[in-house]
Amino acid sequence: MRGWPVRVTEDAGDRIRSVVEIAANDPVFEGHYPGFPILPGLYLVQYVDSTVRAVRCVPGLRMVAVERVRFLRPVRPGGAVSVEIGVRDEEADGFRCSATVSTGTEAVCEMRLRYRQEAA
């Protein structure tokens, strides 16, 4: 693992987009799985979280729930995934996100996350 190399490409308040390069030589592929490299699906949750944090770098903001994730197809090494996030239910103490992660035009994962603003 080499951090979470998220590049934000759009930040329009309630709509956020980013691109993440899936390096073919990322060490994670040596172990997931030997001879059959696919990205651990839960990394996609981290990409969405890192994107949210990149644009809302507020101390005390924390992901408090993964309400739902559907993994549609595995992600192979190399290439990039694009992340599209819609922010909704925004209130003083937090918000929800709906996100779709895609390779090219194909969705690989959909998820809904909840964030809460806690004392920093």
Binding site: Y33, P34, G35, G41, R62, A65, E67, R68, P74
Partner: peptide
């Protein structure tokens, strides 16, 4: 233990995961 000799484990879905404390 070996994906090449057997099956590959894939996460299909997750629902209701609450992160109560870091």
């Amino acid at each position: 233990p070996d994906v090449l000799a057997g099956k590959v484990e894939l996460a299909a879905g997750l629902r209701g995961a609450e992160l109560l404390a870091p």
